[in-house]
Computed example of a mutant assay.
Amino acid sequence: MSKFLSAAASSVVALAIATSASAQTAPAAAPAAAAISHGPALPGVCILSTPSVVGGSQVGKAVTARLQTITQQVNAELGGERTALENEGKALDAKKATTAQDALEQQAAALQVKANAWQRKGQLRQREVEATEQKALARVYQEMDTPIKQAYQAAKCSILFDRESVMLANPAMDITSAVVTALDARIKTLTFDRERLDQQVPGAAALQPSNK
Protein backbone atom coordinates (compact mmCIF):
# COMPACT_ATOMS: atom_id res chain seq x y z
CA MET A 1 0.00 0.00 0.00
CA SER A 2 2.72 2.45 0.96
CA LYS A 3 4.59 1.63 -2.24
CA PHE A 4 1.53 2.36 -4.37
CA LEU A 5 0.80 5.64 -2.62
CA SER A 6 4.40 6.70 -3.09
CA ALA A 7 4.12 6.06 -6.82
CA ALA A 8 0.76 7.79 -7.07
CA ALA A 9 2.04 10.83 -5.21
CA SER A 10 4.56 11.43 -7.97
CA SER A 11 1.78 12.87 -10.13
CA VAL A 12 1.66 15.96 -7.89
CA VAL A 13 5.36 16.51 -8.44
CA ALA A 14 4.94 15.94 -12.18
CA LEU A 15 2.08 18.44 -12.28
CA ALA A 16 4.11 21.05 -10.42
CA ILE A 17 7.05 20.62 -12.78
CA ALA A 18 4.97 20.52 -15.97
CA THR A 19 2.80 23.51 -15.18
CA SER A 20 5.63 25.56 -13.73
CA ALA A 21 7.58 25.05 -16.93
CA SER A 22 4.62 25.72 -19.19
CA ALA A 23 3.74 28.92 -17.37
CA GLN A 24 6.98 30.48 -18.58
CA THR A 25 5.75 32.34 -21.64
CA ALA A 26 9.14 33.78 -22.57
CA PRO A 27 12.14 31.68 -23.62
CA ALA A 28 14.99 31.32 -21.15
CA ALA A 29 17.65 33.99 -21.48
CA ALA A 30 20.56 32.82 -23.61
CA PRO A 31 24.14 33.19 -22.39
CA ALA A 32 25.71 36.53 -23.26
CA ALA A 33 27.17 36.33 -26.77
CA ALA A 34 30.24 38.11 -28.05
CA ALA A 35 29.48 41.41 -29.76
CA ILE A 36 29.25 41.19 -33.54
CA SER A 37 29.08 43.77 -36.29
CA HIS A 38 25.99 43.84 -38.49
CA GLY A 39 25.65 45.03 -42.02
CA PRO A 40 23.24 47.85 -42.79
CA ALA A 41 19.57 47.32 -41.99
CA LEU A 42 17.64 46.19 -45.04
CA PRO A 43 14.86 48.63 -45.95
CA GLY A 44 11.45 47.03 -45.62
CA VAL A 45 12.73 43.87 -43.88
CA CYS A 46 11.57 43.45 -40.28
CA ILE A 47 11.81 40.76 -37.61
CA LEU A 48 9.63 40.01 -34.60
CA SER A 49 9.85 37.68 -31.60
CA THR A 50 6.31 36.85 -30.48
CA PRO A 51 7.48 34.91 -27.38
CA SER A 52 9.42 37.99 -26.32
CA VAL A 53 6.31 40.12 -26.83
CA VAL A 54 4.33 37.78 -24.58
CA GLY A 55 7.08 37.63 -21.98
CA GLY A 56 7.75 41.38 -22.01
CA SER A 57 4.23 42.73 -22.18
CA GLN A 58 2.10 43.58 -19.17
CA VAL A 59 -0.65 41.20 -20.21
CA GLY A 60 1.85 38.38 -20.77
CA LYS A 61 3.33 38.88 -17.31
CA ALA A 62 -0.16 38.97 -15.82
CA VAL A 63 -1.04 35.69 -17.53
CA THR A 64 2.17 34.06 -16.26
CA ALA A 65 1.49 35.20 -12.70
CA ARG A 66 -2.11 33.98 -12.82
CA LEU A 67 -1.07 30.59 -14.19
CA GLN A 68 1.46 30.22 -11.40
CA THR A 69 -1.25 31.01 -8.83
CA ILE A 70 -3.58 28.44 -10.37
CA THR A 71 -0.79 25.85 -10.34
CA GLN A 72 -0.12 26.54 -6.66
CA GLN A 73 -3.82 26.14 -5.86
CA VAL A 74 -3.98 22.82 -7.71
CA ASN A 75 -0.87 21.49 -5.99
CA ALA A 76 -2.21 22.56 -2.60
CA GLU A 77 -5.47 20.73 -3.29
CA LEU A 78 -3.77 17.54 -4.46
CA GLY A 79 -1.06 17.73 -1.82
CA GLY A 80 -3.60 17.87 1.00
CA GLU A 81 -5.46 14.87 -0.37
CA ARG A 82 -2.20 12.98 -0.85
CA THR A 83 -1.27 13.56 2.79
CA ALA A 84 -4.67 12.27 3.90
CA LEU A 85 -4.21 9.11 1.82
CA GLU A 86 -0.72 8.54 3.16
CA ASN A 87 -1.93 8.93 6.74
CA GLU A 88 -4.75 6.49 6.09
CA GLY A 89 -2.24 4.02 4.67
CA LYS A 90 0.00 4.37 7.71
CA ALA A 91 -2.96 3.86 10.03
CA LEU A 92 -3.88 0.71 8.13
CA ASP A 93 -0.32 -0.60 8.39
CA ALA A 94 -0.39 0.00 12.13
CA LYS A 95 -3.51 -2.18 12.49
CA LYS A 96 -2.02 -5.25 10.83
CA ALA A 97 -1.24 -7.01 14.11
CA THR A 98 -4.66 -6.42 15.66
CA THR A 99 -7.09 -6.65 12.71
CA ALA A 100 -8.43 -9.72 10.94
CA GLN A 101 -6.98 -10.41 7.50
CA ASP A 102 -10.35 -10.13 5.75
CA ALA A 103 -11.01 -6.73 7.32
CA LEU A 104 -7.52 -5.52 6.40
CA GLU A 105 -7.98 -6.58 2.79
CA GLN A 106 -11.34 -4.81 2.57
CA GLN A 107 -9.90 -1.59 4.00
CA ALA A 108 -6.85 -1.84 1.76
CA ALA A 109 -9.08 -2.31 -1.29
CA ALA A 110 -11.12 0.75 -0.30
CA LEU A 111 -7.95 2.80 0.12
CA GLN A 112 -6.73 1.60 -3.26
CA VAL A 113 -9.93 2.89 -4.86
CA LYS A 114 -9.39 6.28 -3.22
CA ALA A 115 -5.77 6.39 -4.37
CA ASN A 116 -6.75 5.50 -7.94
CA ALA A 117 -9.37 8.26 -7.91
CA TRP A 118 -6.81 10.73 -6.58
CA GLN A 119 -4.40 9.81 -9.34
CA ARG A 120 -7.07 10.35 -11.99
CA LYS A 121 -7.92 13.68 -10.41
CA GLY A 122 -4.27 14.75 -10.59
CA GLN A 123 -4.18 13.89 -14.28
CA LEU A 124 -7.40 15.82 -14.85
CA ARG A 125 -6.05 18.87 -13.02
CA GLN A 126 -2.92 18.81 -15.15
CA ARG A 127 -5.01 18.78 -18.34
CA GLU A 128 -7.11 21.63 -16.95
CA VAL A 129 -4.05 23.78 -16.21
CA GLU A 130 -2.68 23.09 -19.68
CA ALA A 131 -6.03 23.96 -21.27
CA THR A 132 -6.16 27.16 -19.20
CA GLU A 133 -2.71 28.18 -20.39
CA GLN A 134 -3.54 27.47 -24.02
CA LYS A 135 -6.75 29.49 -23.86
CA ALA A 136 -5.12 32.45 -22.10
CA LEU A 137 -2.17 32.57 -24.48
CA ALA A 138 -4.45 32.25 -27.49
CA ARG A 139 -6.22 35.38 -26.26
CA VAL A 140 -2.90 37.21 -25.87
CA TYR A 141 -1.89 36.28 -29.42
CA GLN A 142 -5.29 37.43 -30.65
CA GLU A 143 -4.80 40.80 -28.96
CA MET A 144 -1.30 40.98 -30.44
CA ASP A 145 -2.54 40.99 -34.04
CA THR A 146 -3.42 44.71 -34.24
CA PRO A 147 -0.23 45.93 -32.47
CA ILE A 148 1.86 43.84 -34.90
CA LYS A 149 0.15 45.46 -37.87
CA GLN A 150 0.58 48.91 -36.33
CA ALA A 151 4.31 48.40 -35.73
CA TYR A 152 4.70 46.84 -39.18
CA GLN A 153 3.19 49.87 -40.87
CA ALA A 154 5.02 52.37 -38.65
CA ALA A 155 8.37 50.76 -39.53
CA LYS A 156 7.41 50.69 -43.24
CA CYS A 157 8.03 46.95 -43.38
CA SER A 158 7.62 45.06 -46.64
CA ILE A 159 8.12 41.63 -45.07
CA LEU A 160 8.14 40.38 -41.47
CA PHE A 161 10.25 37.42 -40.31
CA ASP A 162 9.94 35.38 -37.13
CA ARG A 163 13.05 36.14 -35.09
CA GLU A 164 13.13 32.60 -33.72
CA SER A 165 13.70 31.29 -37.26
CA VAL A 166 16.42 33.83 -38.11
CA MET A 167 19.94 33.01 -36.95
CA LEU A 168 21.27 36.58 -36.95
CA ALA A 169 19.86 39.93 -37.96
CA ASN A 170 20.53 43.62 -37.51
CA PRO A 171 18.62 44.68 -34.35
CA ALA A 172 17.56 47.84 -36.16
CA MET A 173 15.10 45.69 -38.10
CA ASP A 174 13.51 44.27 -34.93
CA ILE A 175 10.04 45.67 -34.17
CA THR A 176 9.49 43.54 -31.02
CA SER A 177 9.76 46.43 -28.56
CA ALA A 178 7.36 48.52 -30.65
CA VAL A 179 4.81 45.69 -30.57
CA VAL A 180 5.21 45.37 -26.78
CA THR A 181 4.53 49.09 -26.38
CA ALA A 182 1.46 48.94 -28.61
CA LEU A 183 0.16 45.82 -26.85
CA ASP A 184 0.61 47.44 -23.43
CA ALA A 185 -1.46 50.37 -24.64
CA ARG A 186 -4.17 48.00 -25.83
CA ILE A 187 -4.50 45.57 -22.89
CA LYS A 188 -2.75 45.13 -19.58
CA THR A 189 -4.21 42.02 -17.98
CA LEU A 190 -6.60 39.10 -18.40
CA THR A 191 -8.99 37.75 -15.81
CA PHE A 192 -9.49 34.00 -15.94
CA ASP A 193 -9.93 30.91 -13.79
CA ARG A 194 -8.89 27.32 -14.25
CA GLU A 195 -10.72 25.47 -16.99
CA ARG A 196 -13.07 22.76 -15.68
CA LEU A 197 -12.85 19.86 -18.10
CA ASP A 198 -15.11 17.64 -16.00
CA GLN A 199 -18.00 20.09 -16.10
CA GLN A 200 -17.88 21.88 -19.44
CA VAL A 201 -21.06 23.85 -20.14
CA PRO A 202 -22.09 25.86 -23.23
CA GLY A 203 -21.60 29.59 -22.91
CA ALA A 204 -18.91 29.43 -20.24
CA ALA A 205 -17.59 32.82 -19.16
CA ALA A 206 -15.03 34.10 -21.64
CA LEU A 207 -11.72 35.64 -20.72
CA GLN A 208 -12.28 39.23 -19.77
CA PRO A 209 -9.73 41.88 -20.79
CA SER A 210 -9.05 44.79 -18.49
CA ASN A 211 -6.92 47.90 -18.80
CA LYS A 212 -6.84 48.64 -15.10
Rank of each mutant, 00 (worst) to 15 (best):
S165C: 02
T189P: 11
T25S: 11
Q112W: 09
T181N: 15
I187E: 13
R163W: 02
G79W: 03
T189R: 15
D162I: 03
S177A: 15
Y152W: 10
Y141V: 07
Q134G: 05
N116G: 15
A182S: 10
E86A: 12
D162M: 02
Q142N: 08
K114C: 03
A172L: 13
L183V: 00
N116D: 15
D145N: 14
K188Y: 12
Q24E: 13
T99K: 10
V179L: 07
G55M: 03
T19V: 12
E86R: 08
T189C: 10
G56D: 14
M173F: 12
T176Q: 12
P209W: 14
A29F: 01
G80W: 09
A9V: 10
R186C: 02
L111M: 06
G60H: 12
A7G: 15
S6C: 03
E133C: 00
A62D: 12
R139I: 01
A94Y: 10
V179T: 01
M144E: 14
K3D: 15
L5E: 07
T69S: 15
R186G: 03
P51L: 06
G79P: 04
L160V: 02
L111H: 04
P147R: 01
G80A: 08
A29D: 07
G44F: 11
G55H: 06
A138Y: 02
L78K: 00
V45L: 09
S49H: 00
A136R: 01
A182R: 04
A21R: 07
A154F: 00
R82K: 12
T146Q: 13
F192A: 01
L104Q: 11
L197G: 08
A117C: 07
L5N: 00
A32S: 10
L5C: 05
L111T: 04
T83M: 11
S49P: 00
L5R: 00
H38T: 12
R194H: 08
S2W: 08
E195T: 07
F192T: 00
S210V: 11
E105A: 14
M173S: 15
A29I: 03
L67D: 07
D184P: 00
A97C: 04
L190D: 05
G122R: 06
R196V: 03
Q199H: 14
K114M: 07
I175P: 03
R66Q: 14
A94N: 11
L48M: 04
K121V: 03
E130S: 07
P40N: 14
L48Y: 03
L168H: 12
L42H: 10
